[in-house]
Structures are given as C-alpha cells and as structure tokens.
Design a protein around this nucleic acid. Sequence first.
DNA 1: GTTATTTGACCCGA
DNA 2: TCGGGTCAAATAAC
Length: 337
Amino acid sequence: MEKVISWEQHNLISELVQGKDLAKQLRNHLVSPSSSRETHEYFVEKILSCYQKSLAMLNCDALAEEHRPAFSIGTSGSPKDEGDACKKRKTMPRWTEQVQLNSEAGLEGHHEDGYSWRKYGQKEILGARFPRAYYRCTHRNAQGCLATKQVQRSDQDPTVVEVKYRGRHTCIQARSSAISPDPIIKEEPPKATAIRQEQPKPSLDTLLSFKWGLNVKAENARQDDVFPLFTFSSPAVETENGERDYFADALMDDGFMDTFSSPATSGSNYFSLSLDHMANFCPPISVQTPESGLTEIVSAPTSVTNSPMGDAAFSAFSLGKDDFNLDCSFDGSEFLL
DNA sequence: GTTATTTGACCCGA
DNA sequence: TCGGGTCAAATAAC
C-alpha cells in the first residue's frame, strides 16, 4: 500500500532520522576513549532536541512544554516562563518518598538524594508538628530545571522524613553529578535509609536512591508518572481511530528501532531507554503501568548504577544493551492521542 | 563578591 | 476564605 506522507510527516521523519544519526554518533563517541564528556552531553542535547521537535509535530504540545527546559539550556527563565511553569504545575509528576533517618546527624532532616537542591521556603503546615521545607533544583535558573521537592518530618515518627518530589530533573549537571562515579557516599555514609513500602516511581531520582544505599517508597506515584513498559504494536501500527501511525511506522521502516531493539518478543518490539529520558520522550497520559514491570525495574537497579557509562543520561539510547536493560513497552496508538 | 538560607508577603486553587 | 506554594528582600555563610 502506498503511503501518502504529508510535508509535516516528512519533517517528522527527518527529525527522527536525524536523531537516529546523532545517536549513532554518540555511540561512536562513547566507545572512543578520546571523546570527552562535553561531547557526549552535546549529542544528548541534540538528540533530545530532535525528539522535542518531533513531539511538537505530533501535537504533543503538553509533553513538549513540560520538557522544554531541557532544550533551553543557557537561557534564563523570564517571569513569563515562570508563569507558564505555574500553569503546568498541576501536570508535573509527583511522587513521595519516606526516608528513615538513622543517625543523630540525620535527625537534622537532611536527605541526600544525589541532586543539588536550593531551599526557597519553609512553612508551618496546619496540623503538622514540623514545618515543611521547600526545595528546588539548584540549576533552575541556569538550565530551567523545574524539579522541586518538599521535605517534612513525620508527625508520627520524627525520625522519618517525607520527601515529596515534583517534576523531573532536566538539568545535565545535576544528572551528571548525581551519578558521579565518585559518590559522596564514599566519604560520608548516607545519613538516611528509606523505607520501601510501595512501588517506587522509577525515576532517575529513585534509581539514584539505590546508589546512595536507599530503599525508596513512592506512594503517590500516578500511573502517568511511570514509564515501565514501552511497546510498539507490531507490525500493524495504527491509531485508535484506524489511521496509519506514520510515526511508529517511520521508526520501523527506517530501521530506527535497530538502535534500541533487544531480541524481539512476540508481537512487540522492545527498546531500552533510561527512565529519565523515557519520561522526556513519552506522553505521561499514555503509559500503561503493569506492576510486574515496575517491580522488575526496582529490583534490578544495579543494571543502571553499575553501568560502565556511569551516566544514565548517556545510557538513554541503550547503546550497550547489557549495560542498561530496562525494557519499555510503548503503545504507539496511545502515544499519538 | 557570590551563593545559600531565612522569612514575611503575596498568589492561587479548593 | 483559608491553606499551601512561591516569591523576593534581608541576612548569613563562604
């Protein structure tokens, strides 16, 4: 059957092909000992930019908006931008971790999660014994990272700190430092251990928490915050209303999936991405959340933290499948909704 | 001088 | 109207 590809679709395919090429270049740089980290970051940003444009073409405006800061590095946020951020605030992913403080030092309430945070407020909360502290990413201004967190001691058990995260980190420096091959833990053991009570949101933060020797609880993780399995229905790729899905089609026709594919399973093509970048690529509203997938991800954090690449950002395209093997199924039909 | 924290005021959603 | 979240000026720390 002959495909009729519109101008927009042609541009979309071009963007995706460009992203594929960039990923290949990044792969080459990753295996090259002479290649610098800055080069890797450059390619990552370029690849993300391609996806940003692609998503915009697919009318995933909300998604594109949510991750805009990742592609505006170097530009300071204007008041107008801040206003936009406020409008999007309700759509930002949220999840909660409860951290058990197990030392006197920890009782001060400091929760090290690998990111650098800046405190911007503290409030007494009605009915709560302890004030709530508000933190945002240190790189908010420099890189437009909108990640925030709230830290509050538990009323029932003052040795437990409830940390509410909002928004994902889009900052490169934080991400890099967070997965630094020389974690702080080497010099200073973690002050806190967390109580894992439910399925954690498989965010980079959560994964990182394992690196700090933490077990994490995420109790408010919504389905749309989680990106456990990504499946392209194959071979027929159609939207719900029966339209041909040229996006997924193009990915497969062009061999784009080759870069990401692992041995095909029945009826699905799998590719691997870092969870953090999965969040960047995928519309939260479309994601299925099979619990088994989550459990698998959470129970095998070492596949991420022990990656020789050392940086999940560079694992985003699973250039070494053995290094990073989070399987993500993606329903292409929902993706286009 | 620069960066981080504190804290009262303001804004917004329920 | 109230409470939570954020802003921004003042202050502290480095």
